[in-house]
Nucleic acid binder design. Structure first.
Lengths: 327, 327
DNA sequence: TTGAAAGCGCTAACAG
DNA sequence: CTGTTAGCGCTTTCAA
């Protein structure tokens, strides 16, 4: 068992209160006493028990982040930036991979209550669950509509959808498919589909959707995508749900004897660092991941501080149009 | 403030001890009392305060993971698997991005002591720091040599280096460069360099190294890599430190007018899921990330349980040789 | 089978 | 300026 404040107090010949005062730099203390206590703490190599303090203050300085999986680079990068931001503000990050499974998410929410985390950032995507209500005064969400009162930080998905669709149109595509997620999940990402539809209509083109739920396994996604190219391929452009799906489309198209980008142009979404490094030739919409992280943390801390915050925060996105002759 | 065990006790007309017994399923309790307490807990929607329990038991059921950054897909994937594994065993994950900075790492270690995490998994890479000694009975490391007593879980780097070098030789390369990390950091990854050297010598070829420290910024790495191709390029094969560096080499080579893979063959290391999805044409050595995660957790829990464990655990790697005509 | 009371390490009145 | 004391919510003896 480690040393306590009491050990320090005894060794230094003062009361525990005095040690506590030094520790927290609170109240009047003579320079001499402070010095003595500090020295003693060092000699003993005393480490305050944050657990006890948390218990007392009812604050853990833990923030939980619920994401589908940090395996996905969007969330891996988001996690990194959120942790960095939180650490700077003196908070620590408790990671929860929900795998987009409702039961997992419920279990985690229960756990978070028990562990008394100070706040929660949700980036997972599910049908809504009531359990979020419990956290209403200490939660924000990234790209997901939870309840009417939970602040949401999101990319400008409409703009993203518009830029993507317009890019394909500008490159001469006439029959463009939009791959979207599960329609029944309320997420700002749905705005992309709306924007796509609007662009198509403005340009007098037909629109068509294919649903590839985000929570599927990669193999299942690939199977769905293969369906697109299995029969006679009627598309010359695809606006994919994310960069990985975009890549899957490209792979499938090539396997099915389609040349990319000559016969088929594909545009992705997310534009994570790793995708841009590995596939710079992929056109995509870049989400401001670092800013999403910063805003989320900022707004969450404001909420915890009982300040008034905007219900919706929308951040701009950018088109990364590949000039490459390859794609 | 949330409800306490006392509220439940009062409402149920029993003592707090009894409620505690129900909560922990310990000691003798009549079925009737148990039922009454359970019902009351539900009615009140009582959530036990895990913080208080932690405080008492001196166990937080938190495990910390120190990685350079979850932004890097190797660590993003590792984080995912470790969290999944821990959650299954009833532990939660506290993430620390060290950015391979010694000061960050020291700060985190201090924090981990204060927060009284039950254990630590380290995947960060630095010069050794003494602070780890404090954790000797509750720590394991992934691919990093900390102290003589800290168990290490690693890939078979020698095998990886051998497979990679041999692959390049087999493909006909004669002048192969090995890009390695900082020589002064003690890591099993150094074995790759040894294996490479051995293979070169076996084949009567000259070996040569280029140091690209892992902790540099991407831009700095690119600058170092550009140096390789800036002058007259003497290499026809490169064994890169990881897949991202491999890709940087390919990019730089192409920019400098070299054709890949005709004039230059490159092999990477790590073989993360995302890299295989986005760049299936890149030859690489696949690290068993999921197994590394599982073993790390298993061994850490054994350590916490005061069981005897192996000081070194080595997991096999696989060559992913691209058949693609493209690279 | 149940309850009373002590105490985990720390902070915060309240005295002195 | 410093010390005494009373808890925070829970578990754990020890009694009943």
């Amino acid at each position: 068992m480690s040393l306590t404040i009491k050990d320090v107090a005894e060794k230094a010949g003062v009361s525990v209160t005095t040690v506590s005062r030094v520790l927290n730099d609170r109240g009047y203390i003579s320079a001499k006493t402070r010095k003595k206590v500090m020295t003693t703490m060092e000699e003993l190599n005393y480490t305050p028990n944050e657990m006890a303090r948390s218990f007392l203050s009812n604050k853990t300085r833990f923030i939980a982040l619920i994401v589908p999986t940090t395996e996905n680079p969007f969330f891996g990068e988001l996690t990194f930036h959120i942790e960095k931001e939180l650490a700077q503000k003196g908070y620590n990050l408790f990671i929860c991979n929900s795998l987009n499974d409702v039961d997992n998410e419920k279990k985690y929410l229960r756990l978070l209550q028990e562990k008394r985390v100070d706040g929660v950032i949700v980036g997972s995507h599910n049908i809504n669950i009531n359990e979020y209500e419990y956290f209403e005064n200490k939660i924000v969400s990234i790209e997901r509509e939870l309840t009417a009162h939970i602040p949401i930080i999101q990319s400008d998905n409409y703009l993203g959808g518009k830029l993507a669709a317009q890019e394909l149109v500008d490159k001469g595509c006439k029959r463009i498919l939009c791959i979207r997620g599960d329609q029944h999940i309320k997420t700002p990402a749905n705005d992309r589909a709306t924007a796509y539809k609007d662009v198509m209509e403005e340009n007098g083109l037909n629109y068509s959707f294919k649903e590839v739920p985000f929570q599927l396994q990669d193999q299942e996604k690939e199977a769905l995508i293969d369906q697109i190219f299995a029969g006679e391929v009627v598309y010359d452009g695809i606006f994919a749900g994310d960069d990985i799906i975009a890549k899957m489309c490209i792979n499938s198209a090539i396997v099915h004897g389609k040349s990319v980008p000559e016969e088929l142009k594909v545009i992705g979404f997310d534009g994570t660092k790793i995708v841009r490094q590995l596939n710079p030739e992929l056109s995509t919409i870049i989400q401001p991941i670092e800013k999403l992280a910063q805003k989320s943390v900022k707004i969450l801390l404001a909420v915890l501080n009982e300040e008034k915050v905007n219900q919706v925060t929308k951040l701009s996105v950018k088109l990364l149009a590949s000039n490459s002759t390859k794609r």
